[in-house]
Design a protein around this nucleic acid. Sequence first.
DNA 1: ACCTGCGGAGAACGAGCGTTCTCCGTAGTG
DNA 2: CACTACGGAGAACGCTCGTTCTCCGCAGGT
Lengths: 190, 190
Amino acid sequence: MDLAEASDRLLVAAERLYYSRGIAAVGIDDVRAEAGVSMRRLYQLFPSKEHLVAAYLDARDVRWRGRVAAHVDAAGDDPGDRLLAVFDWLGLWFAEDDFRGCAFINAFGEIGGESPLILAAVQRHKDLFRDYLADLARAFPTDSPDVLASAITLLAEGAMTVAAIGTDPAAAEHAKLAARTLLDAARRRS
Amino acid sequence: MDLAEASDRLLVAAERLYYSRGIAAVGIDDVRAEAGVSMRRLYQLFPSKEHLVAAYLDARDVRWRGRVAAHVDAAGDDPGDRLLAVFDWLGLWFAEDDFRGCAFINAFGEIGGESPLILAAVQRHKDLFRDYLADLARAFPTDSPDVLASAITLLAEGAMTVAAIGTDPAAAEHAKLAARTLLDAARRRS
DNA sequence: ACCTGCGGAGAACGAGCGTTCTCCGTAGTG
DNA sequence: CACTACGGAGAACGCTCGTTCTCCGCAGGT
């Protein structure tokens, strides 16, 4: 097994374990065992647990945003449909068996200010998600795409927390309903 | 020092330490030391850390909702003003020096599924907050107060996460702006 | 004054875990 | 074959922390 494969296997194991059981609750050795990699290799690739966690978050960020974007693209070209498709995807995500909330919000709550590395990864992810929504909003015919983007972001983030804590899968539908109202209000009258 | 005072001092110390540094990062002994209470007393009042944390969350829930309600009451009688006042209060809260996000969202991310006791305390708080917003929404002249309440809840929860992670105090203003739009759209035309 | 029991201070215990070290087999090279 | 370097397996170390235990002083009753 070469370094690249070891790294892949570690990140896959890390994502499964850290997301389902939490970061503090999963030991380095758990990840190592599930990945079938030796301690030596692990510390060669990631010099500390902090680095491993940050790498897990970065990998998850790419996969997660990829899944959102794929669903949005499948919704077609209409800017309104594309914005609303985000909430459809959230609904699908919330309904997954292993849904345990937003990995990044959870990581923030868990390590928050203790680790600059992890905090940075979390902020990076949230910024990128927000930027993505802002791009979608800019394609919508409105005079204030930034305001619209902010509102959509807040609804999406709120839906994630409500769905995670309240285990209410309808959170996505409520958010979509509110988003539709906001879109109607923001639509440029022409 | 009697039991009641020991309990008070422990809960005050617990809130300060757990909220500012996180639950896992603060040891039982830290709380005990700051409260000036003996181990014996502590374990007599709270048979485990889990119980102490749950009690801290319950105490914070009461204080936190009390602060929101006080600010809403100060905003007067108009149902729309009262709903919007929630976001004004969030803005004040976000700007506080020691703001570190929503204690309950953080606790959920930190202990999530590991502790039924703590999970229950978190869910209780979020339910009560949601119920409170629903009460405010029911006073508003609209045909669908439940839909309005859901949307307001999502905006508020979203603002908390965005403010915590992105350290953007303007989150409350954006949420208020969106809420105002939703209120206008929901207002019963008469 | 003596006994009794409560409670304070803090040491002790045991478990978990991040990190490092040791031992050993093996593959590659002359 | 001899030597070396690498890396796997997992033991060892050191630390933290939740929880319990020990020791001791003291207040109150007889």
